[in-house]
């Protein structure tokens, strides 16, 4: 309600952040001017190189932690780190809005103090924000921290307006006015016309040395800063360069002979560019904002493998080492079977099959030719068996082995086997005899021969019986004749003396 009309209803300013592409991303200059000493730091690519850090790391605000800026800076390898947010020095509680690397740490509920933030699209935001704007999800803040007093708005000092806007309770006005006017150590953040983020700090001691906010605003304005807000100062004002304290803190140590840096709350950190994703998908190293992927993983995020799963076909697996082929397959895209004689992973194993057996390219199992068996096809079929796997039984005679391939009975095929020579000879004889018998076909069948033989036998038997009957009949009809022997010359004697002769029956002549 109380801001000048020239700003309309807008209570904050935005500016596109610089996206300096070079390797260099930060430049810090120390200054010693009048009685002032401090540093002005220019950050070229703030979206990728600036982070608001919780004390000691993530979760520090929830634990109400306070840590030295050096300690917190080490958690993120900050090249330059400064204190930033306000906090309760008694309890350690972080105050205001805090978004750290896209993570909402603390929402103040729209507290009316100057804010500095970086949105996801790289927009730098300075000014007053409602709770709805803080929680915007369309273009959310990736970094956000609260300060007190908007020093410069659009190139003009904006302190008076800030006092009215940030302190509506009359009784507190005096405190805020003193806060602005007193000289002390100061810390601030702003941006220039090129969108570079400007970190500022000046050493001091409250009421003794240092700068008031008017002087800070003027110095920043002279340096080309467009918008800037004031951050925590006094003894909290700390500047750390490459992990080491590089300013003069104003809090006394316990022994009061030295000055000591204060353990503070949040830290504004300038680091090397972050990668997207920050851990390079755990398959690469982030170097100046670019993921350098491990072999086999594809840029820019290192989330995908170099080879595409489809490129490895049905017989391969896409891995970080390229296509890894299944056992029995080879080639860049695993499309070729192992060459003959090899099998297994990467076709590195040698087949052991002999006698013409083929090798299974996956496990190396032998497929034997007909007539052979065994793990390596090293054995011929045992006698009496033939064919694939020697499972078929020969139909040859006992003495005649069969061909182990075709199963045909053959006497010569085993000639090379000494143990079979004798059997083969017998087999050959039997074969020849069988062939001869087949060639010698009889004119009459065996049955015919049986009939003929039987008939002849019957005739012979009949004849024999007839003769016996006849002989027996004569023996019974007349007595036994006596025989006498007469010399032949008597038989051939003179014819005229037939009386001398005693004629004998004709039978006797025959004798």
């Amino acid at each position: 309600d109380c801001q000048p009309l020239i700003y309309g209803n807008l209570t904050h300013e935005t500016w596109p952040a610089s996206t300096h592409p070079g390797v260099s991303f930060v430049k810090s200059k120390a200054f010693l001017y009048k009685n002032w000493s401090g540093h002005i730091t220019e950050v070229y690519d703030p979206l990728r190189t600036v982070s608001v850090l919780e004390p000691g790391g993530p979760g520090g605000c929830k634990e109400f932690r306070r840590e030295l800026v050096e300690t917190t800076a080490k958690t993120r390898k900050c090249v330059i780190a400064q204190n930033c947010g306000f906090f309760n020095t008694h309890t350690g509680q972080c105050l205001g809005n805090i978004v750290s690397d896209g993570r909402q740490v603390k929402n103040s509920g729209g507290v009316q103090n100057a804010q500095f933030g970086i949105r996801e699209d790289g927009t730098l935001v300075f000014g007053y924000l409602s709770e709805e704007e803080v929680l915007d999800r369309i273009n959310p803040f990736v970094q956000l921290v609260s300060g007190v007093v908007w020093l410069l708005r659009s190139g003009k000092v904006y302190i008076e307006e800030s006092i009215r806007a940030e302190c509506e309770k009359t009784q507190e006005t005096g405190n805020l006015q003193r806060f602005v006017d007193v000289i002390s150590a100061r810390t601030a953040v702003g941006h220039d016309t090129e969108g570079r983020l400007i970190l500022f700090h000046v050493d001091g001691k409250t009421d003794t040395r240092g700068m008031n906010l008017w002087e800070v605003a003027e110095l920043l304005k002279e340096h080309g800063v467009i918008n800037a807000i004031n951050l925590d100062g006094g003894g909290s004002s700390t500047y750390v360069l490459n992990g080491s304290l590089a300013n003069f803190p104003s809090d006394e140590c316990e022994d009061k002979s030295w000055y000591c840096p204060r353990a503070v709350s949040t830290v504004l950190c300038v680091h090397e560019r972050l990668c997207q994703p920050e851990d390079c998908s755990q398959h690469g190293t982030c170097v100046n904002g670019q993921c350098e992927c491990q072999p086999g993983w594809a840029a820019p995020t290192c989330a995908n493998l170099t080879c595409q799963p489809s490129a490895c076909g049905e017989h391969g697996l896409c891995t970080s080492d390229g296509c890894v082929c299944d056992a029995g397959w080879r080639g860049v895209n695993c499309s070729q079977e192992c060459t003959a004689g090899f099998y297994g992973d990467e076709c590195k194993k040698t087949c052991t099959c002999v006698n013409g057996g083929s090798c299974d390219p996956v496990r190396g199992r032998c497929t034997c030719r007909a007539g052979f068996h065994g793990d390596s096809c090293e054995q011929e079929c045992p006698l009496g068996f033939y064919g694939l796997h020697c499972l078929q039984e020969c139909q040859c005679s006992d003495l005649c082995p069969c061909d182990p391939v075709s199963g045909s009975c053959n006497a010569t095929f085993r000639s090379e086997r000494n143990t079979s020579l004798h059997r083969a000879g017998h087999c050959l004889a039997i074969q020849m005899w069988k062939e001869w018998r087949e060639q010698e076909k009889p004119y009459l069948s065996e049955q015919s021969w049986v009939v003929i033989t039987a008939t002849l036998a019957a005739v012979l038997l009949t004849s024999l019986i007839g003769n016996l009957i006849q002989v027996c009949g004569k023996c019974k009809g007349r007595p036994q004749q006596e025989y006498s022997y007469v010399p032949l010359k008597e038989v051939n004697g003179p014819r005229d003396s037939p009386n001398r002769s005693t004629m004998q029956p004709a039978k006797a002549l025959f004798q």
């Binding site: 729209g110 009316q112 805020l176 002390s184 006094g234 003894g235």
Partner: peptide, 29 residues
């Protein structure tokens, strides 16, 4: 024993009683 601790003596408080903003809030109307 060489660690030195700050005495938090150089306090620069913008608001009385606290070290930080603790007052009105803005809402979108």
């Amino acid at each position: 024993k060489h660690v030195r601790h700050s005495m938090d003596d150089d306090l620069l408080l913008p608001y009385a009683g606290t070290h930080g903003p603790s007052h009105s809030h803005r809402h979108v109307r």
